[in-house]
Amino acid sequence: MNDGVVLVLTRLEDSSADMVIGHLVASGAQVARFDPGVDFPEKATLSTVFADGSSWGYLAAPTRHINLKRVRAVYYRRPTPYRTGSTCQVERFSGTEARFGLGGVLASLPCPYLSHPLVLAEAEQKPLQLLVAQRVGFTVPATLITNQLDDARTFAAEYGPIIYKPVRGTSFMESNGSLCTIWTTAVDPADLNETVRHAPHLFQACVNKTADLRVTVVGEQIFCVQIHSDLLDWRADYDRISYAVIESPSDLSERCLSFLKAFRLRFGAFDFALTDDGPVFLECNPNGQWGWIEDHTGLPIAAAIADLLLKDSA
């Protein structure tokens, strides 16, 4: 299978995937890049046969023809979502069929994935993350998920000061057409009102941190970076960040690996708040961004991902 193809599923503009592909090509691997949500069905064709106890087929686009039996590994990065939310009934039907037809065929490939979309879907659940984080020994801030105003006020009185962050980070469009993101925000209990009822809200005890840690795990390799920022949520302004590569404490590394094992993951981007008593778990993005970390620190994350894809499929 070493002469097979590494299939990279991502959108056209993905500089992090570009970095990994560069290392794969330099290693002599054959690489095929494909964006299911854009390329299919208008620009690509799919045929797969399931018969006689096995399956075979191909995925073809104007510039490439992929024999699915020759796919040795899949790097599932950031593909464009299928058009399942379209207001056009025909487009919505076509998008749903593509998601479960093409997406189902790709998900059934008997090769290593980094990481499998079904595994990612489970690992992205923040409530489940908090439970697993506690089980593996991480310190986790007191957390409430609720749409009940009285419970939110009680939580704020017991654990304040508190912060709010989305259960899942989702960008939205302002009325002026600008794209916005909700960052972690301090909550004044006096501002809590009946709008809490409109959606589940994730409130947490605010951590008195001295810095942040971003721990990127690739297979068994740990890349630990200390992040300094004057912001509550450093992601709100990358120009106000400074970085320092540090050695990950052994117990933290072991717990990160145990966390990923619980979710059947080989990659994870962990965020911790660093306090005088040690790191506090905030979340793990199972398909998180890492390219900017490599750009600022020189850590060989892309090479590690490429090596893991080739090693797992050797």
Rank of each mutant, 00 (worst) to 15 (best):
R99P: 05
A142Y: 02
S175E: 15
D188C: 02
P127W: 12
N147V: 00
R92D: 07
H198P: 00
N193Y: 05
T184D: 11
Q134N: 13
D230Y: 03
P127L: 02
P161C: 03
P117I: 04
S178P: 00
C206Q: 15
Y159W: 12
Y159G: 00
Y159L: 00
V218S: 08
Y159I: 00
T181I: 08
T210L: 08
Q129E: 12
E194G: 02
K126G: 06
V218E: 09
S108I: 06
T216W: 13
F93C: 02
A107M: 08
H116A: 08
A121V: 07
I182W: 09
G103E: 11
G137T: 00
A98D: 12
E158D: 14
L149C: 02
L149G: 04
D191H: 08
V215S: 04
T195M: 04
E97N: 04
S229G: 07
K126N: 11
R153N: 07
S94K: 11
V136H: 10
V187L: 02
V225P: 00
T216L: 03
R214N: 07
H198Q: 14
D151N: 09
V119D: 13
Q221L: 02
S175N: 12
E158Q: 15
P166C: 02
D212S: 10
P161N: 09
Q134K: 15
G104R: 08
A186N: 10
T143C: 02
G169K: 14
T170M: 08
G219R: 00
R92L: 01
L202E: 13
H198T: 14
T216D: 05
P166H: 11
L202A: 04
L192F: 04
A133K: 09
V140A: 01
M173W: 03
S178I: 03
H201T: 10
G160K: 01
R214P: 04
D212Q: 11
L131W: 10
L131G: 05
C180Y: 13
R92V: 03
L131H: 14
A142C: 01
G169T: 15
P141E: 11
P200M: 05
D188F: 01
F155K: 11
W183R: 08
V132D: 01
A211N: 03
L149H: 10
G160R: 01
S171A: 14
G137P: 07
H228C: 08
V217F: 03
T181K: 03
D188P: 07
T170G: 01
A205C: 09
T96R: 08
F138Y: 04
T170D: 09
V119F: 07
V167I: 13
A121T: 12
L202S: 06
F223T: 11
S175R: 12
L128Y: 14
S175H: 11
C206D: 00
N208I: 01
R99A: 14
A142G: 01
L128M: 07
T143A: 04
V215G: 03
W234H: 15
W234A: 07
Q204S: 09
A157K: 13
Q204M: 03
C224K: 12
F203A: 01
V196S: 00
L130F: 07
G219D: 14
K126Y: 10
A199M: 04
L102Y: 13
A107T: 07
G104Q: 06
E124W: 02
D191W: 00
E122C: 05
E194Y: 05
A107G: 12
L232I: 02
S108F: 05
V105R: 07
